[in-house]
Simulated scan of single mutants.
Amino acid sequence: MKEIISGAAIAIALSTIGFSAQAETFHRTNTEIGYEVHVGDNPAGKTSEQVREELLAAKANKKEWFFTNLNAAKPGWMVKTEKTREQVAHERDSVTPEEQARIDEIYNTGA
């Protein structure tokens, strides 16, 4: 299952390269690597001054800036918990077969 998902992700990533602005930079070739890079072909991007102005305009509205950039959820490994390792292991081991079947049905569909 993991191979199918990762293969699909790679296919999507490779297909989006063809539609991106940098697609003109990479040219397909019949070589081992499969492409050549032509840096002079890519379109000019924004200047650092333009980016700085956009950033200042975005920061002007503090509430919007907070909700879009600073209020992101923390990853699981950064969240502090009051439970000990033993308590978590006990919870894991005390799951009833019915509950485990329900969890398997939710997370292991189609496998």
Rank of each mutant, 00 (worst) to 15 (best):
E24I: 11
V51G: 01
Q22P: 00
S48H: 09
N42M: 15
T29I: 13
E53R: 08
P43V: 06
S48E: 14
G34K: 01
D41C: 05
K59H: 09
E32A: 12
D41L: 07
E32R: 10
T16F: 09
P43C: 05
E32L: 10
F26N: 00
K59G: 03
T25A: 12
G34I: 00
T29W: 06
A23T: 05
I17G: 04
F26H: 01
I33V: 14
K59C: 06
T25L: 09
V39N: 14
S15G: 12
A21K: 15
K59W: 09
E24T: 13
E32Q: 11
S15V: 11
G45I: 01
A57Y: 06
S15H: 15
F19H: 15
H27I: 12
A21I: 10
H38V: 06
D41W: 03
E49H: 09
T47F: 01
V39C: 08
Q22N: 13
E49N: 15
K46M: 14
V37F: 03
E36M: 14
K46G: 03
K46H: 07
N30V: 08
N30F: 11
S48Q: 10
S15D: 15
E24F: 07
T31W: 01
T25C: 07
H27N: 14
D41V: 03
D41S: 09
G18E: 07
A57W: 04
H38A: 05
H27S: 14
P43D: 07
A44G: 04
L56Q: 08
N42K: 15
L56E: 07
G45E: 03
R28F: 06
V51D: 04
Q50H: 03
K59T: 06
Q22G: 06
T31V: 04
L55E: 08
T29L: 09
S48L: 14
N30Y: 11
S48F: 08
T16L: 12
Q50E: 11
Y35G: 02
G18R: 05
T25Y: 02
T16W: 06
I33M: 12
G40V: 02
E32K: 10
T16P: 00
A21V: 10
F19Y: 15
G34T: 02
A44L: 10
E53F: 03
Y35A: 08
L56D: 05
V39Y: 09
R28D: 00
A21D: 11
L55C: 12
P43H: 07
T29E: 13
E32C: 05
V51K: 06
E54G: 02
E53V: 06
Q50G: 01
E49A: 15
Y35N: 03
D41K: 14
I33D: 07
T47L: 02
K59R: 14
Q22F: 10
H27P: 00
P43E: 08
G18Q: 08
T47M: 01
V51Q: 08
K46W: 09
G40F: 04
A58H: 04
G40C: 04
S15R: 15
F26E: 01
A58N: 05
P43A: 12
F26T: 01
H38D: 09
A23W: 03
L55I: 13
F26R: 00
N42P: 00
T29G: 04
A21L: 13
L55H: 08
H38E: 07
L55G: 06
L55R: 09
G40Q: 10
A21F: 07
P43F: 03
E49R: 11
A57L: 13
G40E: 11
L55F: 10
E54F: 01
Q50C: 02
H27C: 08
T31C: 03
T31G: 04
N30W: 09
H27G: 06
E49S: 14
